[in-house]
Design a binder for these strands. Structure first.
Lengths: 249, 249
DNA sequence: GCAAAAGTGTTCGTTTTACACCCATGT
DNA sequence: ACATGGGTGTAAAACGAACACTTTTGC
């Protein structure tokens, strides 16, 4: 059994050269149909559809989510959703907040608990997901029309991510296991929407001792190859606890 | 109609010389009884009570909360609860997160949305509340046994408050309209659980220009009377937006 | 050899820290 | 006159901001 009035929605973030991206799901009309009053006549349904184009159009996308099963913990269910969508376990996942406006979903009351996840771009092609056909990455600046209040949830997710990234070492989850200093700088620049000074940024990173040289360099680049770095897990855990200050300029 | 599977619980914080306090509610047995399976026999109920002493004892207290009405927004409902409990409007109120472990409430599945509120101690005596008889302030270090996961919710509220207070000017809501610099320092010390240096603390405050001298002094104190300060609302709004850094030492 | 990005140091002003004594008031 | 907390300055160290050129590599 599922709880009719509680759902979970996941804002799945990815990052690459083109910026921050969100993984969205093409809306499933069967699911939407279930939201309508059970005894609605076809005339009523027509009117409802007219009033809420989101319910019929192929243009609308949504966050990956679902109703919470009666016997599952929220975090656990969010993790399951994420596994369904991406085939990945052990993804960084964090609750945003509850969204509970009474009319956020038409014709029924659903409170949704928003989560955001940070995806390592090595898994961008979603080959491990069985739902990959209905899923697509969208650039944050070019989002399609979204169902319900999903746009608002994404904006909140972004705010939370910003907050988090300034004071905790979480942004790194959006990078591959080995990454260059330029990549991490551009990650921060995109998330915080702010240009940063390379020398100062690197000094700051160096002082934290969070990164260690992997000994490997970039391959096949048309310019000087950059060193690839990795975390120091111990330092990472320490900074996760203590916090850090990444407000720059 | 209310949503059976969604509640809101408020951690109501107060502050005085003795430290941080939380407003708790003596548990209402009628409400608890409703949680039990409707057809439970008296023998079953006896066993349930035995297994869950929280359901019978007079010792247990709970956060002020309730099930969400079908037509009310979460924030709005939290505000209403707060008004019921304290008689106050316009209280600082912020969502903590959703708590959804499947067994957090025995015999039924309830996901609760936690909020925390910061109360101006001028209103400590709750004269405006019609529920004042069942309510009591508890020192955070001397909490009574609590129902369900309410202790955990309080701990989370405290963590959120700590986070918030370091980077935004919210702690001030726990102080009366006019307050001394020593009061605000001890507020920070209690919340962050850290001794601070008076001279450095005051220099930091001065630099922010958040406080203005009210022109008034303490009365009837057995030592030199301290100046009373107030906010500069403009600066307060600015810092609320931009954030500030109150990590000290 | 040139295009493209990687990598690196110094200076200066600001902020943070550590630290101790006198002041005003009530009893 | 004494007890209680209020109020204040300075020096040294760390940090943050601004700023430009050389290095490596692939084509």
């Amino acid at each position: 059994m599922i709880l009719n009035s509680v759902s979970v929605d996941c804002v799945i973030f990815g990052f690459d050269k083109s910026g921050l991206r969100v993984l969205l799901n093409q809306i499933d009309k069967e699911v939407l149909r279930k939201l309508l009053p059970e005894q609605a006549s076809s005339e009523q349904i027509r009117m409802i559809y007219e009033k809420h184009p989101v319910l019929t159009s192929d243009l609308y996308w949504n966050l990956f989510g679902g109703h919470v099963p009666e016997d599952q913990d929220l975090d656990e269910f969010a993790k399951n959703l994420l596994f369904q969508a991406t085939g990945l376990n052990h993804v960084f996942l964090q609750q945003i907040s509850a969204f509970g406006s009474p009319r956020r979903v038409p014709y029924t009351r659903v409170i949704t608990i928003g989560y955001y996840a940070l995806i390592n771009p090595d898994y961008y092609d979603l080959k491990q997901s069985n739902l990959s056909k209905s899923l697509k990455w969208f650039n944050l600046n070019e989002l399609p029309p979204l169902c319900f209040d999903h746009n608002q949830i994404i904006q909140q997710a972004l705010l939370k991510l910003r907050q988090e990234v300034m004071y905790h070492p979480v942004g790194f989850h959006l990078l591959p296991d080995k990454f260059t200093l330029t990549e991490i700088q551009s990650l921060y620049e995109v998330i915080l929407n702010k240009k940063m000074d390379t020398r100062n940024f690197r000094k700051k990173l160096a002082k934290m001792k969070l990164l260690v040289d992997s000994g490997v360099k970039q391959q096949n680049v048309a310019h000087r190859a950059a060193k690839l770095y990795q975390f120091d897990i111990q330092v990472y855990e320490k900074l996760k606890m203590e916090g850090l200050n990444f407000r720059i300029e």
